[in-house]
Nucleic acid binder design. Structure first.
Lengths: 249, 249
DNA sequence: TTCAAAATCATTCTTTTTCATTCAAAAAAC
DNA sequence: GTTTTTTGAATGAAAAAGAATGATTTTGAA
């Protein structure tokens, strides 16, 4: 059986149920366990499903949403919880900057329609336009790995704008070294965007805390932090230096 | 069995299932494995299907119009012929501007790798990056319908660049009114890009000749034209006003 | 909770299938 | 009749699939 055919079968199976056992797929396709495992790895990488112990599960970000039911569901992934809160901060009529990156991307479903978005994230544009949101891209070098626009062109473009709010992804949050990211070119863009905004928000899950990446973006106090769970000690440590919102389930 | 006939059979088979085994095709056509492989290579190049290990798969991007299936895929569709020629004009080391739009998009497979591309076409970026081409995007408003970047931001961004060559799509080519396009905002971007280039090319099939759209981009002489078939009278008419290359099969 | 059995997983290795390339024969074009 | 194009066969190379191993996770009973 051909690979595309198997993939088809697997995805079809996931349309019916929320999850399938690996063993079921083995029988459905008359292939070996190994082969199905390899397929699942591929499909997971392509973001078509999520592997779980014993098989695969439909991923909820994808495709249709019973959107309202999902929103109200208490089991949003942490990332989406944060994104939902961040999105709720945006008001009708706002002009906001959205940084590139998957965390910020997750905000899009939770944005109001009547806003203007400026972004350096190529991947965001389609989603934003789908939602009928007026979207501007800054210029710059298209970084192959992250599809972010950076460099001189990005900085030049940014200077023509001012924002009500900006939402940033970072790689490190540290009480002493502030916000950091691996690429200095990206750091410059982020820094500038923050300085052009009335209110700046760093959106991050707890894994970035106490991490330090190569290039500094800005000091802690220059942006508020939106995150999910955080142990009380760590929270206290940052709370004195900047505003920090912990989104709980 | 004739070549077009086999191609027909292969494509028909793909209309039923979305993948076929090579072995099935061998039996269906009473041809050798080698022959089918060669057919698949041709059909893949013509973008009629995707080869996969073990056979071929329908490409899900678009359903191809039946008229195309008739033609031998060795003869590229007109659009691709033009695109191929335009691509061949680009030399290693060049820095070029690529306009948004599907005609220009088709050039990408025919570009050399060692170049720098600046574009206002959001849809181009992924393909360009796939080919490891250094890509810059200009900024601007993301027009929902065409995914082109236009407006003030686009113009500002452009001014920082100079190009060896630029490749433009247009909606109208007229011996008196020159090059035109429906959207004045887009027209401004195109005009500026042309003026920033040492050599400018308008890439267009014959359907745009003698058409006039709302907004003027530039006079005929400001860019050379690359097109496919054109009747001798029309050709003569334009030939006196600008350079024009007719790409023949 | 803790432990051990069962199930599932990642990894590696082997076998099988498919692929690209080359070359010679057949067919078609000139 | 010669040249060009198309086809089929043979080769080693590459990829995919299957099978086996030990590690990891889950499960359920103590």
């Amino acid at each position: 059986m051909l690979e595309p055919e198997r993939h088809q079968i697997i995805l079809e199976a996931l349309k019916v149920k929320n999850s399938v056992k690996l063993q079921e797929l083995v029988e459905l396709t008359n292939s070996s366990e190994s082969t199905i495992r390899r397929d699942l790895i591929q499909l997971e990488q392509g973001k078509f499903l999520k592997r779980v112990h014993g098989g695969a599960a439909r991923l909820q970000g994808k495709l249709q949403e019973p959107s309202m039911t999902e929103k109200s569901s208490k089991n949003l992934q942490p990332k989406r919880q944060i994104a939902q809160y961040a999105g709720s901060l945006v008001e009708e009529g706002d002009c906001i900057y959205m940084d590139a990156g998957s965390t910020i991307f997750e905000m899009i479903p939770f944005l109001p329609e009547n806003i203007v978005v400026v972004t350096n994230g190529l991947t965001h544009v389609n989603e934003l336009l789908e939602k009928n949101i007026k979207t501007f891209l800054i210029g710059g070098y298209a970084k192959p790995s992250t599809k972010a626009l950076i460099g001189r062109g990005a900085l030049d473009s940014l200077e023509h704008y001012r924002f009500d709010k900006c939402f940033m992804g970072v790689n490190g949050i540290h009480s002493q070294f502030g916000y950091t990211t691996p690429d200095p070119e990206e750091a410059m863009v982020k820094e500038l965007a923050i300085s052009l905004s009335r209110e700046a928000y760093v959106v991050s899950d707890e894994s970035k805390f106490s991490e330090i990446a190569f290039a500094k973006i800005a000091d802690l106090h220059s942006a508020a932090i939106i995150t999910n769970e955080l142990d009380p000690d760590t929270l206290e440590q940052y709370h004195s230096k900047t505003k920090i919102k912990v989104v709980t389930s």
